[in-house]
Design a binder for these strands. Structure first.
Length: 264
DNA sequence: ATGGCTGGTAGAACCAGA
């Protein structure tokens, strides 16, 4: 008799501006654990009551004023909370916990990387590459079953963007970022859960710019959000879904939620 | 069509996102 563990990851682009959407997601999909990125709120004013009232009484927060910020909200107990500063500049971009089933869950918000894909003229691009490099060294030494989810801000495959050719020199899809993410994936044999259940070259996007008047019109999306599993969990993966309809909810985030389910 | 929008914060002809 196996149980199922349902995890959702969502770049919410301000948790306070989208409380109604978060409530709807919890009501409709009933995840065991919700990982949020870009909460944009300090821990002291995080809307904890919203989650507590729905049974998500276990929380691991890492927020900061205005920007970034991550949170794990859970119906299951969370142990050994930890934070990494993989950019080494104080920004709140990671929080990790251990579930009682023995799985370690890491929630990450990789820096966007600014406009110009050249670390010599754009500090933020270098910080993004350094962040991924530090994650690579960290994941090289892992020795427990781990799920890492979040906004990686890299669309690695040609089919992860609306036009590979048009985005080759656009931050999020440049070869230097794709190679850095590839080294990270190889360092621990991470399984790309999204592509396990939706193999390339099937279209799979998780983000559409706010700037398009109609995000569906040209469908200029990118797969920036990911869920990865360490190799020993391969036989436990049960499902993966991208909740694309959430991009049509009222005042949506520009990212949509991802769900994965595991047999535990 | 590298920004056409959005949120936070201040009270901006701002910044950041990607």
């Amino acid at each position: 008799m196996t149980k199922r563990l349902k995890i959702v990851s969502w770049n919410i682009n301000s948790v306070r501006a989208r409380t109604a959407l978060v409530e709807r997601l919890l009501d409709e999909h009933q995840p065991d654990v919700l990982c949020l990125q870009e909460t944009k709120v300090v821990d002291g004013t995080f809307p904890s009551d919203l989650f507590r009232s729905r049974g998500y009484v276990h929380m691991a927060l890492n927020g900061q004023k205005m920007h970034h910020g991550v949170a794990i909200l859970s119906r299951l107990p969370l142990n050994d909370p930890g934070r990494h500063d993989w950019q080494d500049n104080g920004e709140a971009r990671h929080v990790g916990v251990r579930l009682e089933c023995g799985i370690r869950l890491e929630n990450v918000y990789v820096p966007a990387g600014g406009d110009t894909p050249d670390r010599n003229v754009n500090l933020k691009f270098g910080q993004k590459l350094d962040f991924i490099e530090r994650m690579t060294r960290w994941s090289d030494g892992l020795c427990e079953p781990t799920i890492i989810v979040g906004d990686f801000n890299v669309a690695p495959l040609e089919c992860d963007v609306w036009s590979h050719k048009a985005l080759l020199n656009v931050v999020s899809h440049t070869p230097i970022e794709v190679e850095a993410l590839g080294r990270l994936q190889q360092a621990h044999g991470w399984i790309d859960i999204g592509r396990k259940f939706t193999p390339a070259p099937t279209r799979c996007f998780t983000w559409w710019s706010y700037r398009s008047p109609d995000w569906t019109k040209n469908d200029r999306g990118r797969r920036l959000d990911h869920m990865w599993a360490s190799p020993e969990l391969a036989g436990h993966l049960a499902a993966h879904i991208v909740l694309e309809p959430c991009r049509n909810w009222e005042r949506p985030s520009d990212h949509v939620p991802l769900i994965c389910e595991l047999h535990i």
